[in-house]
Simulated assay, not measured.
Amino acid sequence: MRLSGYLVGASIVSLAAAITGFDEECAPYSFHSTGYDDEIPFPYFNSTEETALFIRCAETTYECDPAIHGSAWFMIDSKTEAVPEDCYKEVYGLHPYDNYTGPISMPGLTELSGCGISGTYEYVGDTYEQVAVYPSNVTSVDLPDVVSIQSGIVIDNANSITSLNVPELRDLVHLILNFTGGPPINLTFPRLYNVYAIEIYGEIDTLDFHSLNKTSTTIFVNSTGNLDCDAFAKSVVNTTSYYLEETGVSCTSKMGTVNLTHVEPPIPEVTSGAFKIQGGFLTMTALLGYILAL
């Protein structure tokens, strides 16, 4: 028994030694590091110079059972290392600072807890109507390998963005994009499959959800561009939920306004003949069961 216990203990120590401890360089992006103020609601991404570090931290930070490993946080590259069963990936959020300037490009990043890009609003008077608006200086967003964003993408007061590229994105909760006042922008989401809510504003000429399967609320689009709202609404209205009253698509552009509602499809009627066949089948099944029981 002592030998067995020794071997188990040795294996635990060996396993703990096999994974790399938490890298404090990742502290500014993580809720749970030892060197970061946990009272800040989420970590901020500061500059383009931090891109490689942010990707590495986001892809390799794991929380593990401290009873096994002696600590909770580790760096594990799942592409080249085995991930212990008790370890779970820490999913980071992407939130640039208000003064962030330039493009955001993160190839290799595969998952986010959320993505929020916004300018700032400052109250300059005694009422809520007296507000100074300072737009975001982000110029483009390129996340070519991101598959999942848990809470969603919220881009607001961002009139400098010329492109948004998320070709592999499949699942998220909210897609809220406000490019009002900015340059023309074409938006395509080729793999987006499930999303709870969609709201999009800006000078949009092209908007495509090629693989969209399900949304849960009305899709709102307000474009100052030449978006064909009729074609767009028809292409996505059946993805909206018909369980909620008046759910569908509301789209406005230079070409006009279109409002479509997803109507619940009729329930197929079952003919009396089908009932007779089904009834006869059930009768024969019952009779056969009775005979076999004899």
Rank of each mutant, 00 (worst) to 15 (best):
I149Y: 02
Q278V: 10
L282M: 11
L94S: 05
S113F: 08
N99K: 09
E269A: 05
I267K: 09
S78E: 13
S33T: 01
E129V: 09
Y6C: 05
S223H: 08
A18M: 10
N186M: 05
E264G: 10
S140G: 05
Y88A: 11
L287G: 04
L143R: 06
I155D: 00
S151R: 13
A233E: 07
D142K: 03
N238R: 13
I176F: 01
L112T: 04
I198S: 03
G116S: 14
I267W: 01
N238Y: 12
Y201W: 12
A233M: 10
Q278P: 00
Y201L: 14
G280F: 15
P184L: 05
S47Y: 05
I185Y: 00
T247L: 05
I277W: 07
G248F: 02
Y196L: 15
S223K: 04
E269G: 03
M106K: 01
G181I: 01
E269M: 04
D142Q: 05
L207C: 12
H174N: 15
T285K: 12
A82C: 04
S241C: 14
T139Y: 00
L169V: 09
G279S: 13
S272T: 04
S148N: 12
Y243R: 10
E24K: 10
G93P: 07
G279N: 13
C26T: 02
C64A: 09
M255K: 15
F275V: 07
L287I: 09
S30W: 11
S216I: 06
T101Q: 09
N157E: 05
N222H: 11
D208L: 14
T261D: 06
E245S: 12
T257P: 06
T217V: 09
I68L: 11
N194C: 04
I104M: 04
A16G: 15
D86R: 08
K89H: 13
S272A: 08
V236N: 06
E85R: 07
N159Q: 15
A274Q: 12
E90H: 14
D86W: 10
E246D: 15
E129S: 14
L288Y: 14
V237P: 00
G202C: 11
V154P: 01
L94K: 01
Y6L: 05
F275G: 01
F22V: 02
G125S: 07
L169G: 05
T110L: 04
I185S: 01
P183E: 09
Y6W: 11
Y243T: 15
G289Q: 06
G5S: 08
G35T: 09
I219G: 04
Y88W: 14
N99P: 01
R191F: 14
P28Q: 11
G119R: 00
G9T: 06
L282V: 08
E63P: 03
D230H: 15
G119K: 00
D156P: 00
I76V: 12
L109S: 03
A82P: 03
S105M: 08
N194P: 02
T127E: 10
M255S: 11
D23K: 11
L294C: 05
A18N: 12
T215C: 14
T252Y: 07
N259Q: 13
L7W: 12
N213E: 09
L94H: 03
S163D: 10
P66I: 04
P103F: 02
K276Q: 08
L294D: 01
K214G: 07
L294G: 06
G279Y: 12
L109G: 01
G93M: 07
V83L: 06
Y242D: 09
L244F: 13
G280S: 14
T80K: 11
S105W: 02
